[in-house]
Design a binder for these strands. Sequence first.
DNA 1: ACCTGAACACCGTTCAAGT
DNA 2: ACCTGAACACCGTTCAAGT
Lengths: 237, 237
Amino acid sequence: MTGKQISSVWTRDARPARTPGRTREEIARATLELLDAEGLDGLSIRKLGAKLGAGATSIYWYVGNKDELLELAYDEIWGEITLPIPESLGWRDTVSAFAYSMRHVMLRHPWVGSLIGRLPALGPNAMAMSDRLRRTFRLAGFDGMDIDYANATLTAYVFGTVIPEIAWSTSMGGEELDMDAMRGTFEHVARDFPDLLERLVEINEKVTVSETDRLRAVSFDFGLVAVLDGLEARLRS
Amino acid sequence: MTGKQISSVWTRDARPARTPGRTREEIARATLELLDAEGLDGLSIRKLGAKLGAGATSIYWYVGNKDELLELAYDEIWGEITLPIPESLGWRDTVSAFAYSMRHVMLRHPWVGSLIGRLPALGPNAMAMSDRLRRTFRLAGFDGMDIDYANATLTAYVFGTVIPEIAWSTSMGGEELDMDAMRGTFEHVARDFPDLLERLVEINEKVTVSETDRLRAVSFDFGLVAVLDGLEARLRS
DNA sequence: ACCTGAACACCGTTCAAGT
DNA sequence: ACCTGAACACCGTTCAAGT
């Protein structure tokens, strides 16, 4: 009587690649392209089959279900993040670069925002990144479980900042926002909180789209510095 | 020629409640119950209709589409978070209590993990919480935009920690995990990273489920203290 | 004002059957 | 070993029609 297993694509090796068949990489890339083009709702097994020039259900030969397919695409994301060599840059600059790169990659593939809360990150690219980040924090002077805590703190900050950013911009659905309508929305939803309303309107008013981006970048940096300062304080105690 | 609008339930008032009709609150509560009982995939407009003793599509009278329905349930979550009075507790203890409460509420309603990256938080409960948090940070001594940056940093940390926690535990799908299978999974996915593997196995080995919970709580606290220390450093500079 | 049922255009997944 | 098509049990959403 064995208990439950973790359900993940990565618990099994890919089926051995033979000439006529597809590979996991092909499928992962095609899935990623479909997601980038049409979003999470736009991805269906049938469309993916068509894109690969195959019958609708042939994907099930390679993958147990749709979530496993998404795991494949999710791990591609981790592969796009860059991390400098910690030995030459020092830990603060290294993890800062990681944080910026991760934010950038997430914004380029906004559908990840909906996956992070649903799928475990057990793919090879995620594992490799984990390992390198741990090495960086060890080099910084963290020890034992603190390595993992520091790692978790940094990643949490990035995820937690970017995920709502994504929700916000997809709910806008594009660039050409009607500023007046937006102001109206704020005045409606924050009508009982004059203080908050003032700030919302203020932010809304002075900004073109590119200024919003800059403001978000400033906010991201503010928090990142705070997180790194906090970690550094731990290091000294 | 007006531009795009934000699409959210909260941009419109609820239709005026008359005797035979339902209210947004009823619908929000029923949706929340269905989500708690069957998860995000278990919620369908038809099931919700049945639960309310109504025709399948009557919900569309109150709500534009399924995402708007989810916004209703999402805002209920914000209403469950408790925040002490900042004036009597001091800012650090106040925002700590907020962070713990938010984590707790999210773990009780794991489906929020998939919504935060998809829906804006514009509901009355979210707004009220925003306002109170801003007040707390102002009391702490933050000023101007720094109030919002500090607020964003804290919330980001909580979201970013809990969201992957949720993904992790739902991919386990329950309590009775086969430890050996889990070890096997780790040995498989982290086979190229001996260091990381060692840590994964170590964590897996020494822990019952309740110990995992304790470990997560320790990790959460480590990061939270770091974030608060980092914010406090900003305050002094 | 509020609700219904039928209908449309989709889904994910299973499975027997093909090569 | 790999792929197919048909079939099943669902979806979200629209809309004319009812009261």
